[in-house]
Each structure stands twice: as C-alpha cells, then as structure tokens.
Design a protein around this nucleic acid. Structure first.
Length: 515
RNA sequence: GCCGCCUUAGCUCAGUUGGUUAGAGCGCUUGAUUGUGGAUCAAGAGGUCCUCCGUUCGAUUCGGAGAGGUGGUACCA
C-alpha cells in the first residue's frame, strides 16, 4: 500500500528570543507604561512615536554589509538595488533622525519620552530577548549638566513609582571624561585614533570589575585572560605601573566594600587621581555639579551614587553616564541565584545628531528596559495579577431554546458595566462550568428550567466555591451542598452580581494585600 | 563567534549492556454523576526515542556530521 501523501504541517513554534504575552501580563505591563508616562510628563517630557523601521543609514553605525546583512539588526532591501531598511534597535537613533529632520521648528532643548518595541538580532539569553520594550527620556540641545542630573532623579522616581522600594534599586553615575582623565594619567591619550582599540579594551575591562573581580581586571589590562571554558580574551597589554593607576582608580568607589560610599567621599577619592588632567578635572567638576543638584532635590546616596566602574561600553557617550540596577540577588524557580542585569541606563551623547547636521548638538538620555523591570517587580511580588478580576462573568445556556434569555442577562450585566459573556458552545452544564473555571470567571449565572419557571436566577461564586471544595471530599456532598451560590429574583440579577463581585474583591484584597 | 553539557508522550523524566508490544507521574478526553467547576475511581487518546549518514542480520541505543536547546565566555547600539 502506498504511503499516504504527507501534508506539510508547520510546527507551531516561535523564533528564539521571541515570546507571546498573555492577558494578565499585558494589563500589568500597560499599567507600568502608564505610570512611567505619568512621571515622565511630570518631569516635562513630551510624547513621541516613530516607526518600527527606518533607513539603515539613519539608524547608525550598524549598517548591513554584504556578507552579514542581518548581523545585530534585522534589515532588508526595499527593492533590489534600493535602500536598506532596518528595524530600530533602540529609540535614541530614531530620535536623532527626528531632531535632525525637524531641527528648526523644535524648541531647544527638545525634551521627549518614547516607548515601544525595539529589535536586536542577537543571541538571546535568560531575560534577554530579540524583541523588547524600552522607555526613554531624552533632552536634546541642552548642554547644561542639570539635564543629566535630572535624568538620574527621573530614573529613581520612576522605579519607585513602579513599586520598587528605596534600597531595592540604585542609580549609579560616572563620567566618561573622568575615565578619559584616568587613561591620560596612565599614559594613554584617549583622543589619539591609534589608541582607540586600547582605550576600548581598557574600558571594557573596567566594566567587568563586578563580575571578574580585581584579578580578572588585572589580567585583562595586562596580557589577557583565559576563562574556565578555555576561551581566551585578549588583554590591553599595559605596563604594570599603568595597571596600578587604573586599579587605584577603581578602588575610589564602593567595589569590594559592604557599605556604599557617599557621593562626596567618592569625589574626594577621585580628586588626586584625575584632577591633574584637563579632561579629568572637567569631568570631576561636572560630577560635583550633579552632586549639588541631587542634594538640592534631596536625592541622597541611597538613591543615586557615584561609582568609577560604570562605563556603559558604548562608544558614543561623551559625558556623564548612569545605570539603574537592582541591589539584591534573586533566585529563580529552580532555586539558582540569578544575576539581574541592569534595569536601564543612559548618559550624555553629544555626537549623535551631528551625524546628520555636521554640527554638534548636545543631548542626554535615559532608557528603562521595561521587561526587565517587569520581571523584577514580578519577582518581588509587586504586580497585581488577579486573573479572576480580569475575567468576565459567564452566563450559562442551560437549554439552547432559551438562549435569548441568557443573552438578555448578559446585556443587562454589560449595561451595568460588568464584564460578562454568553457561553458560546452547545455543551452541557458540566462542560460550561469547566469552561468558566478555566477562564477564571469570578461568577457564573445559571437559569435553568426551575429558575425560569419561578422568575429566578442562580449566581455561583467560583472563587468561594473553590475554597469550600477543599473541605469537601465526597462528590455527592459537594454537589448537593451547591456551594457558594444563591438563587434570587431575576430582577435582582445585576444588584446581586455587583455585591458578590465586590465581596470577592475585598476578599482577594485582604489575601493579597501588603502586610 | 568560541567552549561544555543536553535532546525519549503536551510537560517533567525513567529505560533499552544493540533484538519482537518503549514506560511513569502530571496534564488532556470520556465515564461513574437527569442541573453543578474541585476531590476520588475507571477507561481512553497521545511517540518518525531531534535529523541525516555510517557500522550491523537488526540502531531509540554504537560512530560521524548537522539542527535545536541550555550553561559559560566574547561582543553589545
């Protein structure tokens, strides 16, 4: 016998690093975004939306090349031999394009916030996706250092507004000019093009202090480092006295100490190390000004601190840089310790708009990784995700000939602003209750022959029923007790449903509420 | 990109020292139960043992290559 012709059936799967988001998460996420927008507008930022993809050359340095057109970004050609377009990989590059295109009409500084999906075609990891949401605020055209200080305050206020407690997070700042000052004292001129590679290697090494510790950094500044998997990372090949200078610099911050240092103390530590270079002194002065502004706003070191190890690997940052992190370790469902990546970051980038206009336009911005913060809040139990509150009341259809009676009840409930739906299948009562249970419906409305003849309806509280069921083991008893339901006059339907829902909310509020 | 580990039912995993019918728990479907979601009991559905090539009378099992996953590392706008 001939084999049956195989029909092609695609596996219902997702590309790696992509994910579906279900109702409870969507509402929690929308909630978060609304709260963020509230704070950003409070700070005087205006909203902006830009498209998901743009011409690749407008988005920045990650131009698709012939061999690997999709390295890092998702790109395609509009037509053959036409321009390349790419999905945006952040919200800053589109902003630079927007500002350059509308420069003359815009108020300077131009202060905007923006949220949306961005895409990166990279290897995904835990908590790292190929599509994710960012929430950005930027001030373009403001060279005042107050703009940078403000972003640190904005970051701290935002995270607290979302529910993170003071002490659960920290904003950490540094200044690229200070890093350049240190490099200069170590004998590496950061402005010399031939030093670019060396400079980046050193900055990368400094950025890794957290993870690799002093010894690892020493190796990376020197000949290189071999990790446990046997992989070798090329080092910067600095001389011992150069390495010492950089290690001394790293010691000015809080690394390796249990108590974080006050901003003033860090500034004091930095002074003798960087003040002898012009660029270092400039960076130090900027941090001092930021410190003054933060103090004026009563933002103490428990919210915003200074740390010399913050680099933000990016090439384009030119001044103050900052990063938002969780301050505690968390464990995942397997009980393993998990490092939480940064919740967000930003800094001053004076060169971005210049790509379009030739003229330097100072700008500074801060970006929150929304999904990361979401996961953090979830881990901390700070998200209200009550499925029963989100699901509709289900009105059962006991016999199909009287469906319209059920429809009328749904109409009445909807008219009173109560989420509700008609059961849309033809199955029996048991299946309908199972459906309502799976949907996490708070209540079901039942009107069978008995109720109909008496002008009544039965309303069953599924939440309470579930609780009562734990005390009943015998099925007969469970059925006969008709747990958690009451039968009332038909015209009482809306009133009783409302009061039962209110009782349920109060109940879940008591259970889930903060101590 | 580089290095290690892993891949058997929808999920978590046993197992086959190379041999005829590959198992469990959970989940799913149906019934015990004329109109009551839970619990209990019973029955049932569900597998190219990741793919291809090789060795062999015979491969889910052994060898090679590849794919996917995962952990580390590198890069990171």
């Amino acid at each position: 016998m001939a084999k049956k012709q195989k029909t092609f059936r695609p596996k219902p799967r997702l590309p790696k690093g992509m994910r579906d988001i279900r109702a409870d998460e969507i509402s929690a996420m929308n909630n978060m975004l609304a709260k963020l927008a509230q704070i950003y507008e409070l700070y005087g930022f205006e909203a902006l939306e830009t498209p998901a993809f743009e011409y690749s050359d407008c988005l920045g340095k990650f131009l698709p090349d012939q061999d690997r057109p999709n390295a890092g970004v998702f790109s395609f050609e509009e037509d053959e031999d036409a321009d390349w377009v790419s999905l945006r990989y952040d919200l800053t590059a589109p902003l630079a394009r927007f500002v350059a295109a509308n420069y003359d009409q815009l108020p300077k500084p131009f202060r905007r916030y923006q949220t949306g999906s961005v895409w990166r075609n990279e290897k995904p990891g835990p908590g790292r996706f190929r599509q994710f949401t960012q929430f950005d605020a930027d001030s373009v055209g403001a060279d005042s250092i107050a703009a940078d200080a403000e972003l640190a305050m904005l970051g701290a206020d935002s995270l607290e507004h979302l529910g993170l407690k003071r002490g659960d997070y920290q904003i950490t700042m540094n200044n690229r000019k200070i890093l350049d000052g240190v490099l200069t004292t170590a004998g590496i001129d950061p402005t010399a093009p031939e030093n670019l590679g060396e400079r980046l290697t050193v900055l990368r090494a400094i950025d890794k202090l957290d993870r690799l510790g002093q010894e690892g950094i020493k190796d990376l500044l020197g000949p290189g480092r071999k990790d446990l998997s046997g992989d070798f990372t090329k080092g910067a090949n600095l001389k011992p006295d150069q390495i010492d200078k950089i290690l001394a610099y790293l010691a000015t911050g809080s690394h390796g100490t249990s108590e974080p240092k006050e901003r003033a103390e860090v500034l004091g530590n930095l002074e003798p190390l960087v003040a002898q270079t012009e660029i270092g002194q400039e960076g130090l002065n900027e941090l001092i000004e930021i410190d003054n502004l933060l103090n004026a706003g009563d933002f103490k070191s428990d919210r915003v601190r200074f740390d010399p190890t913050i680099v933000r690997g990016l090439d384009y940052y030119t001044g103050p840089v900052m990063e938002a992190e969780l301050t505690f370790e968390t464990t995942n469902e397997k009980g393993e310790q998990v490092r939480f990546g940064s919740l967000g970051g930003g800094g001053r980038y004076d060169g971005l708009v210049a790509r379009f206009r030739g003229q330097e336009v100072p700008a500074t911005g801060f970006s929150i990784g929304v999904s990361r913060v979401y996961t953090a809040l979830e881990t901390l139990g700070k998200l209200t995700k009550d499925k029963r509150r989100a699901a509709p009341v289900v009105v059962l259809v006991m016999d199909q000939e009287h469906k319209e009676k059920s429809q009328a009840m749904v109409q009445a409930l909807r008219g009173a602003g109560i989420k509700s739906e008609l059961y849309l299948g033809t199955s029996g009562m048991r299946a309908q209750l199972k459906y309502a249970d799976k949907r996490c419906a708070p209540l079901v409305v039942i009107q069978g022959e008995d109720e109909r003849e008496n002008g009544q309806v039965t309303i069953k509280d599924l939440d309470l029923g579930a609780k009562l069921s734990k005390e009943i083991e015998d099925n007969k008893e469970w059925r006969e007790s008709q747990a958690a339901q009451q039968t009332v006059k038909s015209d009482e339907l809306v009133r009783v449903v409302k009061s039962m829902l209110a009782a349920q909310q109060e109940q879940s509020g008591n259970d889930g509420g903060a101590a």
